[in-house]
Design a protein around this nucleic acid. Structure first.
Length: 270
DNA sequence: ATAAGGCCCTGACCGC
DNA sequence: TGCGGTCAGGGCCTTA
C-alpha cells in the first residue's frame, strides 16, 4: 500500500504521537510479522525502550530507540500503525501490541500479513541495499542513468526496483512516467539522456507533490491521524483506465507489466 | 548480474 | 446468499 509519500506522512504523524514514550510490554500475536530477532527476544529487547528518533528510508520507517537500537517497520500492502488508548481492544488483524507508559498501546495491524518489523542495532543491515533517496542530493540524473544503462527490463519495472531508486511504488511510477511522457513499456537502458533527466525530475516532482498532499488514500488507507491524504485527487493516470487523458483526451490504457497494473496514455507517452 | 514468475495472505468486488 | 474468479499501493525467493 504505502509508497514514499505515504511513509513520509506516517513518520511525520507518528512522531508527535510516540516521541518520548516508553514501551512497557510487547505482545506478538503473529510471529512471522517479526523478521528479526526471534519474537521472544524481540519482546524482551523492546521492553523499557523509549521512542527517540523518527526517520524514513525508502518505504521503511526507522523508529530509533533510546537504547541505540532501531525498530524498522515496512507496511508493505496493508500494514497499519495506530496509537490507541489502552481501552481499545485489538481486532483479529492486529499482530503486534506495544503497551506504552502513556496509558496507550501501539497496534500493528495488517490483514494480508505482508508487512514486517525488524529490531536491529544497525539499520543498514536492513536498508543497506536500497538505491538513493529520490528527494536527496545524492539522486542525480547521471547516477540514475548509470543505474539504467544496459538494462533491458521495462522502465516501469526498473522504477519499482528499490535498488535503482528507493521509495517509488506502483502509483508514483505510473504518474512519473506520464509526467515525463515516457511509455512504461520502453526498456530502461534505451532511454536517451534527456529522457532520463526528464524522468528524474518527474519522479522527484510526483513524490514531492504526494508528500504535500499527505499521500494517496485509496480504499481504506489513511495515515496514523486517520485523516486521509488527498493526492489521489491529482492522479493523472493511476486507476483511470478508459477515462480520457487530461492532456489529449485519449482513453487511458491499463496493461500488466512486471506483474503490476500499469496505467498510461497511449497518445502522450512514447 | 539480470529478468521473469511464484509466492506470501486476506478482503472487496463482480458476474452468475 | 453463495460461489468462483479477479484484483489490490510490495518484495523476497527461485529459476533460467
Amino acid at each position: 500500500m504505502p509508497e514514499l509519500p505515504e511513509v513520509e506522512t506516517y513518520i511525520r504523524e507518528l512522531r508527535p504521537q510516540l516521541a518520548g514514550k516508553r514501551v512497557v510490554a510487547g505482545e506478538v500475536k503473529w510471529p512471522r510479522i517479526i523478521a528479526t530477532p526471534e519474537p521472544a527476544l524481540f519482546t524482551e529487547l523492546i521492553r523499557d525502550r523509549r521512542f527517540d528518533t523518527f526517520g524514513r528510508r525508502g518505504k521503511y520507517m526507522l523508529l530509533g530507540l533510546d537504547s541505540g537500537e532501531t525498530l524498522i517497520v515496512h507496511l508493505r500492502m496493508t500494514g497499519e500503525v495506530r496509537i490507541h488508548p489502552a481501552s481499545v481492544l485489538p481486532d483479529k488483524h492486529t499482530h503486534l501490541l506495544l503497551t506504552l507508559d502513556s496509558n496507550e498501546r501501539l497496534h500493528y495491524r495488517d490483514p494480508r500479513k505482508f508487512g514486517r518489523l525488524w529490531l536491529v542495532d544497525d539499520p543498514e543491515s536492513v536498508v543497506g541495499k536500497l538505491g538513493p533517496e529520490p528527494l536527496d542530493e545524492g539522486f542525480t540524473p547521471e547516477g540514475f542513468a548509470s543505474r539504467l544503462a544496459g538494462r533491458t527490463a521495462s522502465i516501469k519495472a526498473l522504477l519499482l526496483n528499490q535498488s535503482i531508486v528507493a521509495g517509488v511504488g506502483n502509483i508514483y511510477a505510473d504518474e512519473a512516467l506520464f509526467l515525463a511522457r515516457i511509455d512504461p513499456r520502453r526498456s530502461g537502458g534505451e532511454l536517451s539522456m534527456p529522457q532520463v533527466s526528464v524522468l528524474h525530475a518527474a519522479v522527484r516532482a510526483v513524490l514531492q507533490a504526494g508528500i504535500e498532499g499527505r499521500g494517496s488514500s485509496l480504499q481504506s488507507y489513511a495515515p496514523p491521524s486517520g485523516e486521509k491524504g488527498s493526492f489521489q485527487e491529482n492522479h493523472k493516470v493511476f486507476r483511470r483506465t478508459d477515462l480520457p487523458c487530461y492532456q489529449c483526451g485519449a482513453a487511458i490504457r491499463r496493461i500488466v507489466l512486471a506483474q503490476r497494473s500499469t496505467h498510461f496514455c497511449p497518445q502522450c507517452q512514447s
